[in-house]
């Protein structure tokens, strides 16, 4: 009887593991579909943000002209109340989605990151707040591209 109970426990534990693994992957995994998208529209769809509303409450600071596309500093502040996450997309890069940040209690919806830009492009930021998506763009002209070379 003891042995039987043990087998049942083992089977139960194995099943629990099987159930847990994909859930964990979903929660913490890198969003392959969004990062693998070759267009901004597809990347936004994969993020669940297909048609974000334009807003002036996202402030994007980036150089108007970047001499070196390998290192372009982008600074984003979201003034959209209740901002939960923020995604940065370089529209003309081979894979536009560059980064996505999820902010929890204790973090301000702000980020500064250096990105590579293959050519002059719109830098698009998409913010999620209260289950809705908002967006703003800023154009950056690049003198020397920074993806190949």
């Amino acid at each position: 009887m003891d042995a039987c109970r043990r087998t049942t426990l083992k089977a139960g534990a194995a099943l629990a593991l099987l159930l847990l693994v994909p859930l964990r992957a979903l929660a913490a995994g890198w969003n392959k579909a969004a990062f693998g998208s070759k267009s901004t529209a597809d990347a936004l769809k994969a993020l669940g943000a297909a048609s974000p509303a334009d807003t002036k409450d996202i402030v994007i600071e980036a150089p108007q002209i970047a001499e070196n596309g390998a290192v372009v500093p982008i600074e984003v502040t979201s003034n959209v109340p209740g901002t939960k996450s923020l995604a940065v997309l370089i529209e003309k890069n081979l894979f536009p989605l560059a980064a996505k940040f999820d902010f929890r209690e204790g973090a301000l919806p702000f980020v500064r990151v250096n990105v590579k830009m293959g050519e002059s492009s719109n830098v698009r930021v998409v913010v999620e707040a209260g289950g809705k998506f908002f967006t703003a763009v800023k154009e950056v002209k690049v003198t020397i591209g920074g993806c190949g070379g």
């Binding site: 913490a28 890198w30 969003n31 990062f35 390998a70 290192v71 372009v72 370089i90 890069n93 894979f95 989605l97 560059a98 980064a99 996505k100 940040f101 999820d102 902010f103 929890r104 209690e105 204790g106 973090a107 500064r112 990151v113 250096n114 990105v115 590579k116 920074g146 993806c147």
Partner: peptide, 15 residues
């Protein structure tokens, strides 16, 4: 407090 996912578009030696 912050969880992020990034791509190869972030510069070398990320800052």
């Amino acid at each position: 407090v912050i969880e992020s996912q990034i791509s190869q578009s972030v510069s070398r030696n990320p800052l």
